[in-house]
């Protein structure tokens, strides 16, 4: 199976423009970028995709070993780049996908021109001398919340979601479909996301990087964004007025402007 099919890759924008990949974080799918990517379509070749297990990806391609660490997700990004023959890439990663971009750029630095890290965190769990903001119990609490909310994933819905059911009556967009995920995959992705530690990978990145830090972001608090910017060899830290963890949805104009300014510099 090609990575393009597996990851539900959507290509838009200017065919001969500089490639710009948008990677969504834990929870939802490529729709997270719906208010951001159009702003770059005029002068970029825009590439959107879903992580395996999310959105329109092929959930049957999920492999516990491969996706047992963020490296598997970074490999997917690199495979997409190879299949589409992308070079001089601007990688835009939200939340956990910021670290996916870090791993991809560390592995194949020649392929990436810029990294844009939206709400990055290299480690969510507190550690000696490091405040990530969460404890292991909090991650258990998240797993319990996931357990209580199999969004759009009753067995009745599953055939339509898996793409092998012929159920036009379900309509185009199922309720909560942007965040639907196979419960088993969502639980493992949650563990991989919130229990990973990529602090040591930051210094391996040679690509110029932008760190976008939101206000009042409990997932990636300000000290964490500052930590990322401090440990990336070539980075720019920009504070957004946007609150919460998803400026791509809550403040797309401000997000677009910050990315534009960084790419123009």
């Amino acid at each position: 199976m090609s990575a393009v099919a597996r990851n539900n890759v959507v290509v838009d924008g200017r065919p001969d423009g500089r490639p710009m990949i948008f990677a969504h974080g834990f929870g939802c799918d490529q729709n997270m970028w719906r208010h951001v990517w159009p702003a770059f379509a005029g002068d970029h070749r825009v590439v959107l995709f879903d992580h395996v297990g999310a959105g329109g990806s092929d959930a049957s391609a999920y492999d516990r070993e491969r996706y047992g660490s963020l490296h598997g997700y970074a490999d997917d990004v690199l495979e997409i780049c190879r299949e589409l023959d992308l070079h001089d890439v601007v990688f835009v990663g939200h939340s956990v996908s910021a670290m996916v971009g870090v791993l991809a750029a560390a592995a194949e630095p020649e392929r990436f021109a810029r990294l844009v890290l939206v709400g990055p965190s290299p480690r969510y769990i507190d550690d000696a001398g490091y405040t990530g903001g969460f404890s292991r119990e909090d991650v258990e609490g998240l797993l319990a919340a996931l357990d209580s909310n199999y969004l759009g994933w009753s067995s009745q819905m599953a055939p339509a979601i898996m793409g092998n059911g012929d159920r036009p009556d379900l309509g185009e967009e199922l309720t909560n479909s942007f965040c639907r995920a196979d419960p088993e995959i969502a639980a493992q992705f949650a563990r991989v996301t919130f229990l990973s530690d990529n602090r040591a990978d930051l210094s391996r990145v040679r690509t110029p990087s932008l760190v976008l830090q939101c206000s009042d972001d409990i997932i990636a608090p300000e000290p964490v964004g500052a930590y990322v910017a401090r440990h990336l060899p070539e980075s720019t830290l920009v504070h957004l007025e946007a609150t919460g963890h998803c400026p791509n949805l809550s403040a797309p104009e401000e997000t677009v402007a910050a990315i534009r300014a960084f790419l123009a510099a």
């Binding site: 974080g25 834990f26 929870g27 939802c28 997270m32 939340s95 969460f134 119990e137 909090d138 991650v139 258990e140 609490g141 998240l142 797993l143 319990a144 919340a145 996931l146 909310n149 969004l151 942007f178 965040c179 919130f194 972001d217 409990i218 997932i219 919460g244 963890h245 998803c246 949805l249 809550s250």
Partner: peptide, 12 residues
């Protein structure tokens, strides 16, 4: 845990 869920699912 629910706060993480709120930020990653509910709010978006």
């Amino acid at each position: 845990g629910g706060r993480i869920y709120h930020e990653t699912h509910y709010a978006p």
